[in-house]
Computed example of a mutant assay.
Amino acid sequence: MQQTIVDRIEPVAEDVVSLVLRGATGPLAPWEPGAHVDLALPNWLTRQYSLCGDPTDRESYRVAIRYERLSRGGSEYIHRFLRQGRTLEVSLPRNHFPLHPAPEYLFLAGGIGITPILPMLRAATAAGVPSSLVYLGQSVETMPFVDELRARHGDRVRIVATRQQGRPDLAALASALNPGALVYACGPTSMLTAAEAAFPAGRLHAERFRPVPRSFAPDTEFEAVCARSGRTVQVAPGESLLDALNHAGTPVASGCREGVCGSCEIGVLDGEPEHRDDIGAPAGRMYACVSRALSPRLVLDL
């Protein structure tokens, strides 16, 4: 974890604040567009936020947080109680939404989904790659960073206030794509579902804040062997691997507990995991908060 100090807290839209976190002991770890970090909040909660500042700035990170009416304690604490000067622990950046090389980009953002898209658009335009952004929100007042986008990117950005203008025709945007162009989208489920219907799967890269509802076979008990400690842990039906390991005295870091943030990634040395995450675990890895085992035994790099 990295030590940071809350340098600035600024309102950037209705119910949205931006935090600028300055490194407390020197430069912060580098990151690339699409990355996010875990914030360890003083109320004992850990929450994940996309980095939306400038990757070349090693002195500070910027994130933005929308106040959720049904907050589980994270956004409520930040909006109501967090103050300038407070020290926060921040994880090293992780990136499950990287910007791949392409001859052209179309970016789609909905509401707070603008946060990972901001540095992507900045990087693409700085590299001279043709890029455009369609940014949706119920009203301009609810959409963070509108003024910044207009000032920096001008007519590359199309702002769509859906209450007045309705939703854009994604099928028309798809038909106008040039060969090789990639689409990056982040926002609410309804927008991402529409994007998946409109754009070819191989050209669309999307990041979700909530997992897609899916069905799996009933849970079965399995054995988790921790290769480094020699501990063997039984994982019961209805119990997550993450909880079983933690209860057995093998703590694993975690955040969302929904399979979308990647905080609980662990190595698998033997056995067949059943991947239930929304990220796409790399070979030899799994996310302990939701994923289980298809084999009776997993050997873990723990």
Rank of each mutant, 00 (worst) to 15 (best):
V6S: 12
D7E: 15
I9W: 04
V12L: 07
V12H: 06
A13Q: 09
A13K: 11
E14V: 06
D15N: 14
L21K: 11
A24S: 13
A29H: 11
A29K: 10
E32K: 14
E32R: 15
A35H: 05
H36Y: 05
V37S: 08
Q48D: 01
T56S: 15
A64R: 10
E76F: 10
Y77R: 07
T87W: 00
S91E: 09
R94T: 11
P103W: 00
Y105M: 10
L106R: 06
A109Q: 05
G111F: 01
I112N: 04
G113N: 07
I117A: 11
L118T: 07
L118P: 02
S131L: 10
S132V: 00
Y135R: 11
G154M: 08
R156Y: 00
R156C: 01
A161V: 01
R163N: 14
P168L: 04
A171M: 07
A176S: 14
L182D: 03
G187N: 03
A195V: 07
E196S: 13
E196K: 13
A201D: 03
L204I: 03
F209I: 12
P211R: 10
F216I: 05
A217T: 10
P218R: 10
P218N: 08
F222K: 11
G230Y: 06
T232F: 04
Q234T: 15
L245F: 01
C256A: 05
R257T: 11
C261Q: 12
C264E: 09
E265T: 12
G271T: 04
E274G: 12
E274D: 15
H275C: 00
D277E: 01
R285E: 00
R285A: 04
Y287F: 15
A288P: 03
C289D: 05
A293E: 01
L294G: 15
P296M: 01
R297D: 07
L298V: 08
